[in-house]
Amino acid sequence: MDEGRPYRRIEVITGRRQRRSYRAEEKARIVAESAVPGANISEVARRNGVNRGLLTVWRREAGVVPVSVPGEYSPEGGG
């Protein structure tokens, strides 16, 4: 290494990253929090450490977000 250049540290990350699993009670609480009128879905997701897309899937599964019909407009961005 050149004497005039600073030393650079490189970090090597090994192993597989594990997906986080959520308990049913935890999902239900987060979905309920996002279903409150005026709630910002992105903020709820961020506050709970959940991806916004995953929260949208949970909301759809719980019936909070209607499933869009192809060609139909959806304010959630699904159509």
Rank of each mutant, 00 (worst) to 15 (best):
V64L: 11
W58E: 00
P37C: 04
R46P: 04
A62F: 03
R59E: 11
E25S: 13
I30G: 05
G53V: 06
G38F: 09
S34Q: 01
V67W: 06
A32P: 03
T56F: 08
R60G: 06
E26D: 15
N40W: 03
W58A: 00
R59Y: 06
V31S: 05
Q18Y: 04
L55M: 05
S34W: 03
A35Y: 01
E26K: 00
E72C: 03
S68Y: 03
S42C: 07
R59F: 06
G63W: 07
R59P: 08
V36R: 14
G77C: 13
V31Q: 01
Y22E: 05
V12T: 15
R23A: 10
V44A: 07
S21E: 05
V64C: 03
R60L: 14
G53T: 08
R20C: 01
Y22T: 08
Y22C: 03
I30K: 02
L55F: 06
E25K: 05
I13F: 08
R29Q: 13
N40P: 04
L54K: 00
R52S: 08
N48W: 03
I30P: 04
V31G: 03
P70V: 07
G38T: 11
V50W: 02
L54Y: 03
D2M: 05
V12K: 14
V67R: 15
E33P: 01
M1L: 09
V69R: 14
V44T: 11
R19Q: 10
A39G: 15
E11T: 15
R47W: 00
E26G: 04
R29A: 15
A28M: 00
A24V: 09
P75M: 09
R8T: 14
P37Q: 13
S74A: 13
G49N: 13
Y73V: 02
V69Q: 14
V57I: 10
A45G: 08
S21W: 02
P66K: 14
Y22K: 02
G79M: 06
R52M: 07
V67M: 13
V31F: 01
V65S: 02
T14H: 05
R9K: 15
R5P: 08
